[in-house]
Design a protein around this nucleic acid. Structure first.
Length: 419
DNA sequence: GGTACTCACCTTAGCTGC
DNA sequence: GACCGCAGCTAAGGTGAG
C-alpha cells in the first residue's frame, strides 16, 4: 500500500440521460428536457438544468413535473443506449487508472494515487478526465478530488452547475478538498449532505437539534447510536469527522438480482398476478444464467393500491436459475396474498447465490427437474442472444391482440402512457 | 394526493441446535 | 424435562443511494 494521503476522484456525469438524448436531438438544446416514465404512475429519471430551474428533479412523480414545467419535453428514455455510452465513459476512466469503482451508469470512483507520478497531480488528472469525456463523447462531467471517497463525492457535487429560477450557472467543473482542509469544507454543510442521512434519519437527528455536519460531529456518539442504531450511528460519527478509509473496490460482488414492475392499472386476481410472476421470474432467471450463478433465496414483493408494501421470501435447499424453479418457489408465497384490494406492483428477486443445483447433486429430484428446465432455458438464451430479447419468452408474456411480446426492461421508470 | 426501479445494508424477531 | 445463553440462520420490514 502507498503511504500518505490517497488521491481519490469522484466523476459524476452532468444530467447524463438527458445529455445523451441531446446528442441525437440537438434541436432540444436550451429547452427543458426530462427523461422518465411518461404515464401517470411514472417518475423522472433525469432532468436537464433548464428543467431543474422550474423545480423538476429526479425521482419526482412525472405528473408533478408536468404541472411544474408543462412546456418541458418528456422522453421515455433508452436504457440500452445509456449503458452503451456509460461503457465508453468507463473506458476513458480505465485509460487513467485500473482502480475504478463504478457506482452507477453515470458515476464512478477512481483511485489515482498510483498514477500521480506518471500523469501529474490529482487536479491535472481530474481536468484530463473531464477534457477527454468532453472531446471524445461530447458530454460534460463534474469531478471531485479528495483524500477519501466520501469527500470526493461531496466535492463533485460542489463542482456541478447550479439551476436557479433566474438561470443556469456554470459550476467550477473540478473541486478539490486538500488534506488538512477536510473539516473546513465539511462542517458547514447541512447534515443531509452525509451519505446515509435520508428522510427518516434526518427526522431523528433534528429531534436532537442537529442541523449541520458540525452539530453532528459535536454530538455524543452514544446519543447518536441510541437514536439511529449502532452501525449507522458509528458510521455517521466517523463521516462527520471526515474519516472514511473505505477502499475503491474494483470488483464488487453482486448480492441480489431482481425485477419489479408497476402496472398501469391495478391487478385483482391470482391469475393475473401469476402471469406477471412468470414474466418477472423469466427476466430474473435469464440474468442469473448470464452471470453463471443460481440463487437459494427467492423473494416476492407486493405493493397494494394504497401503497402498503409487503415482502415474502423463501429459501430452497438447491439453488435455482430457471424461471420454472423460481416460479415453483415463489408461487406458494403468491397464493397466500389476497389480491382483492388491488395490486399496483409486483417484484421478484433472487439472492443467497451459490453454484447451480445440478452441479451439486443430480441425484436430488428438485435438482434433476431444474437441470431439465435448464436445457430448455439455455436454448431460449441462445435464441435471445441471436435475435434479441423479445424474440422468445413465456407464453404469458404476450400481451394484447397484436401478440407483442412484453419483456422486462421496457418500462424502466414506470408504465408508459399508451399501455 | 402523488410517489419507478435496482441494489445494498441494517434491525428486529423467531426458530433451531448445542 | 425445563431452563439459560449463545450462535447461526431465516424472514420481514425499513432505510438509503442513484
Amino acid at each position: 500500500m502507498t503511504a500518505g494521503p490517497r488521491a481519490i476522484l469522484h466523476v459524476d456525469m452532468d444530467a447524463f440521460y438527458v445529455s445523451v438524448e441531446l446528442r441525437r436531438r440537438p434541436d432540444l438544446h436550451g429547452k427543458p428536457v426530462v427523461v422518465g416514465g411518461t404515464g401517470p404512475r411514472g417518475v423522472i429519471a433525469a432532468a436537464n438544468y433548464e428543467a431543474r430551474r422550474f423545480g423538476v428533479y429526479s425521482a419526482m412523480p412525472s405528473s408533478t413535473a408536468r404541472r411544474m414545467c408543462p412546456h418541458a419535453v418528456f422522453l421515455s428514455g433508452d436504457h440500452e443506449l445509456y449503458a452503451q455510452v456509460s461503457a465508453q465513459v468507463h473506458e476513458i476512466f480505465q485509460s487513467v487508472t485500473p482502480f475504478v469503482e463504478p457506482l452507477a451508469l453515470d458515476e464512478a470512483f477512481l483511485d489515482v494515487t498510483g498514477a500521480l507520478r506518471l500523469l501529474g497531480d490529482e487536479m491535472h488528472i481530474a481536468r484530463l478526465v473531464r477534457a477527454e469525456v468532453w472531446q471524445q463523447l461530447d458530454l460534460r462531467c463534474s469531478v471531485g478530488v479528495a483524500p477519501n471517497k466520501f469527500l470526493a463525492k461531496l466535492a463533485s457535487k460542489a463542482a456541478k452547475p447550479v439551476a436557479r429560477p433566474d438561470g443556469v450557472h456554470e459550476g467550477p467543473g473540478v473541486v478539490q478538498v486538500r488534506p488538512g482542509d477536510e473539516l473546513a469544507f465539511l462542517h458547514p454543510l447541512p447534515v443531509t449532505a452525509l451519505w446515509g442521512v435520508g428522510p427518516a434519519t434526518l427526522e431523528r437527528l433534528q429531534r436532537l437539534g442537529v442541523r449541520t455536519v458540525r452539530d453532528l460531529a459535536e454530538l455524543d456518539e452514544a446519543a447518536l447510536v441510541s437514536a439511529v442504531g449502532a452501525a449507522h450511528g458509528q458510521h455517521l460519527h466517523r463521516l462527520s469527522w471526515a474519516i472514511d478509509d473505505r477502499p475503491v473496490e474494483v470488483d464488487r460482488e453482486m448480492k441480489s438480482i431482481g425485477h419489479e414492475e408497476t402496472y398501469p392499472a391495478d391487478l385483482h386476481t391470482y391469475d393475473e398476478l401469476r402471469r406477471e410472476l412468470v414474466r418477472l421470474a423469466d427476466g430474473v432467471a435469464s440474468r442469473l444464467r448470464a452471470h453463471g450463478t443460481a440463487a437459494r433465496t427467492l423473494s416476492l414483493k407486493v405493493r397494494f393500491a394504497g401503497f402498503h408494501t409487503i415482502t415474502r421470501s423463501t429459501t430452497v435447499p438447491g439453488a435455482v436459475h430457471t424461471a420454472n424453479g423460481i416460479v415453483k418457489a415463489v408461487d406458494p408465497l403468491l397464493q397466500a396474498v389476497d389480491p382483492s384490494p388491488g395490486v399496483r406492483l409486483l417484484g421478484v428477486s433472487a439472492s443467497n447465490f451459490s453454484p447451480p443445483a445440478e452441479q451439486l447433486s443430480l441425484l436430488d429430484d428438485a435438482a434433476a427437474a431444474e437441470s431439465e428446465w435448464d436445457a430448455a432455458e439455455a436454448t431460449v438464451d441462445a435464441i435471445r442472444s441471436r435475435f434479441g430479447n423479445t424474440a422468445i419468452g413465456p407464453a404469458s408474456a404476450v400481451r394484447g391482440d397484436g401478440l407483442r411480446l412484453v419483456r422486462k426492461g421496457a418500462q424502466q421508470w414506470g408504465p408508459d402512457q399508451q399501455q
